[in-house]
């Protein structure tokens, strides 16, 4: 057998094959969507306010930022790593974008270019986590905790005690202007999800991230160097957080250091609830989107039926512990090491 000629390679298109899902529907794949429908139904019955069209729009708009963050974190979780850097990176990019577009602090008016710079800043910080992981061999939850602190520090430095208010009409418009009933922000989130899903399915980066979570040592035996892919995944995640920081700034109309507060945990919750295993190798963007909707519907629904919004974090804490326990328990062994 000889190497395939380029001519052969170009003659594709015939039947575009795609990775086939597992045969049969397992509970772990079908569970989250069913849970979403059930929870939606329960709240719709309980609360007349919940089942209005405008509230459904609200839910989708409210899910936008979380969806973007979750897109990033899903790739990291898929590798079996963890990422706690979202609050720091989002804070840094939120302040950065607020200072780069038209604002009350300086004369900048870079518009979309400013947005791009903020996203790049996020990517750079994400890259830092990845590098610390593969070069210094520090576990990812420590490197990302550190990078989160660095991001918050950078944000505080740029913040310099005076809140930058955004006066840029484009960025402000993202949060208020609507297209087909949904805010532009929501459409941006939809685009992110699509990009994420395509990356996961059709790019080497996405497939290798998936494989790293499945059996990292096998990749080494097959001659694949995993380190660059790990750094790339953290960089991509950072870019998503950077964009999420921009979106939060658009929603608030101002750059805040705390723009990303709590998003790390919410995103992990959403991904885990959607069926991503913390040990890696299972789940994906579309799973995570279901998780994001689940978390958002739950949050919104609880508020609609009169539960204090302060409980939000507590409910997320409970469901993430429960979801992880449910995923881990069937594989429990005696003499198993749990760190």
């Amino acid at each position: 057998m000889t190497t395939t000629s380029p001519a052969d390679a170009d003659r594709e298109v015939v039947h575009a094959g795609r990775p086939r899902p597992r045969r049969g529907i397992s509970l772990s794949d079908a569970g989250p969507p069913i849970a979403l429908v059930v929870i939606f139904g329960v709240f719709a019955v309980l609360s007349p306010d919940f089942r209005t069209v405008s509230n459904v729009q609200n839910v989708l708009d409210a899910a936008a930022v979380l969806a973007v963050v979750t897109c990033g974190i899903s790739f990291v979780l898929m590798m079996g790593s963890i990422d706690l850097s979202a609050p720091g990176i989002m804070g840094a990019s939120a302040i950065a974008v607020a200072l780069l577009v038209a604002n009350n602090r300086n004369d900048n008016d870079f518009g979309l270019f400013g947005v791009a710079v903020a996203v790049l800043l996020g990517a750079a910080l994400g890259c830092l986590s990845g590098l610390a992981l593969v070069v210094l061999k520090v576990p990812s939850f420590m490197t990302t905790l550190g990078v989160s602190a660095v991001g918050l520090g950078v944000a505080t430095l740029m913040f310099a005690g005076v809140q930058p208010n955004v006066t840029d009409p484009m960025l402000e418009g993202w949060a208020v202007e609507r297209f087909l009933g949904l805010a532009h922000l929501t459409w941006i989130a939809v685009a992110c999800v699509l990009v994420g899903a395509l990356v996961q399915r059709y790019s080497r980066l996405g497939r290798y991230a998936f494989a790293i979570g499945g059996a990292e040592e096998v990749l080494g035996l097959s001659g694949v160097r995993v380190a660059p892919y790990k750094v790339a995944v953290f960089t991509m995640a950072g870019a998503f957080y950077g964009l999420a920081g921009v979106l939060v700034t658009s929603q608030l109309g101002a750059g805040l250091v705390q723009a990303g507060r709590g998003y790390d945990f919410s995103a992990i919750t959403a991904a885990v609830v959607g069926g991503t295993l913390l040990s890696g190798g299972r789940g994906g963007i579309l799973h995570s989107v279901v998780g994001v909707l689940l978390v958002t519907v739950l949050t919104n629904g609880l508020v609609q039926v009169g539960v204090s919004p302060y409980w939000q974090g507590g409910v997320q804490g409970l469901i993430v512990v429960a979801a992880v326990a449910a995923a881990v328990l069937p594989q429990r062994r005696r003499n198993q090491v749990t760190k």
Binding site: T3, T4, P6, D8, A9, E12, V13, V14, H15, A16, G17, R18, P19, R201, Y202, S203, R204, L205, R207, A211, V218, L219, S222, G223, V224
Partner: peptide
């Protein structure tokens, strides 16, 4: 795995070639 050759072009999978 590790020797995808024409199966991956510029980091993009070509599933039919694969």
């Amino acid at each position: 795995l590790g020797s995808e050759g024409p199966g991956v072009r510029r980091g993009i999978y070509r599933w039919s070639t694969m």
